[in-house]
Computed example of a mutant assay.
Amino acid sequence: MPQLSVLDLTPVRTGQTTGEALRASTALAQIADQLDYRRYWVAEHHNTVSVASTNPPVLIAMLASATERISVGSGGVMLPNHSPLVVAEQFALLEAAFPGRVDLGIGRAPGTDALTRFVLRGQEMESPDEAVNRFPEYVSDIAMLLRPEGVEMAYGSRRQSLRATPLASSVPRMWLLGSSDYSARLAAQQGLPYVFAHHFFGQGTAQALELYRANYQPSEAYPEPRTFLTVNASVAETEDEAFELATPHMQSMIALRTGGPFNAQRTVEEAVEIGFPMEQLDMVHAMRQTWIVDEPKSARERIAEFAYLHQVDEVMVQPIGGARAGDPLDRTPSREQTLQLLAG
């Protein structure tokens, strides 16, 4: 088995408050820490009723404080939504508080709707499209700002030093995230670790990794290309139970891809009762081909084969099992079970 890590979107289900969803994620992170998972990443999504992970730096601070060993990071910060200096300052402080445990994963997509993008950037700031176009520049800016010596910049007729924190003794690990050739090329050019979002698309993975490795330009911090893969996972004592638990998340993903209503996640009982209409069965089949929805032994074997196929020593699982009607609101037993069964 490769080393395992966790991706968490902090899902919000029917009848659950934001606070309860956060407590469920905290409990999940603590279990991952106890089971010796390598890292625990949280995503950035805005204005979405079924996802509470709006602010990765806040969540990282909360989860790092509740755990002891596991690396905690962003999967990822959507850089077009933010000033590079603000991101650098946030993660410099996190690294100072939890040295050696902080990952800064950066993505180029906005991760939200047009209105939220406008409000996040502010009326007086550059357009969202310009922020996307300047993404490579912003990534370089963050790397320089995080260095202990910072960067010297011209301002008017003067030159002035600018740094993310007064005296850094270490810097967070930077990763570029993506689901296209663009991010693979940029990570290779800038000598940065790279993660392909296999859990979201499930296609193009081999091509993106080949492009990244073939074009990698060594950097001082990362002399060799470094990558891992992400995958959705629902693991239970039987394959049928794992599929049942995965049904709410599958329905949410189908709604996202077909323009349907994106509501708080249904309970397992509600989702199973609704099921899937005939026209969605091809999408369900495609998800089952690229997701890990299985019993423990087969799930571990499939993850090992997946890692071997793509020559990675780490796989980040997003535990996507839903909650049953009687489950406590501040825990998600099916997600916890997935981590426990995969860990053996």
Rank of each mutant, 00 (worst) to 15 (best):
P2L: 04
T14H: 09
T14P: 00
T18W: 12
E20S: 07
A21F: 10
T26S: 06
Q30I: 06
I31D: 04
D33S: 05
L35W: 00
R39P: 02
W41C: 06
H45F: 13
H46Y: 12
A52V: 13
I70P: 02
S71L: 14
S71Y: 08
V77M: 11
V86N: 13
V87N: 06
L93G: 05
L94T: 08
A97G: 07
A97L: 15
A97N: 12
F98T: 03
R101P: 02
V102D: 01
I106K: 03
A114L: 15
L120M: 15
E124C: 10
M125S: 11
E126A: 14
D129L: 08
Y138L: 00
S140N: 14
L145R: 05
L146D: 04
E149Q: 12
M153R: 15
M153D: 10
R159E: 13
R159V: 11
Q160V: 15
S161N: 10
L162G: 04
S183W: 03
A187M: 01
A188C: 00
A188I: 02
Q190F: 03
A197V: 02
F200L: 15
F201A: 04
G204M: 06
Q207F: 07
T227M: 01
V231P: 00
A233Y: 05
E244H: 04
A246K: 08
A246F: 13
A246H: 11
A246R: 07
M250V: 03
M250R: 02
M253F: 01
P261K: 10
F262W: 11
R266A: 12
V268Y: 02
V272W: 08
G275R: 11
P277A: 13
Q280W: 14
Q280E: 15
M287K: 01
R288E: 12
Q289M: 08
W291S: 04
P296H: 06
P296M: 03
R300G: 00
I303D: 01
I303T: 00
Q311M: 13
D313E: 13
D327V: 05
P328Y: 07
L339Q: 09
A343K: 14
A343V: 03
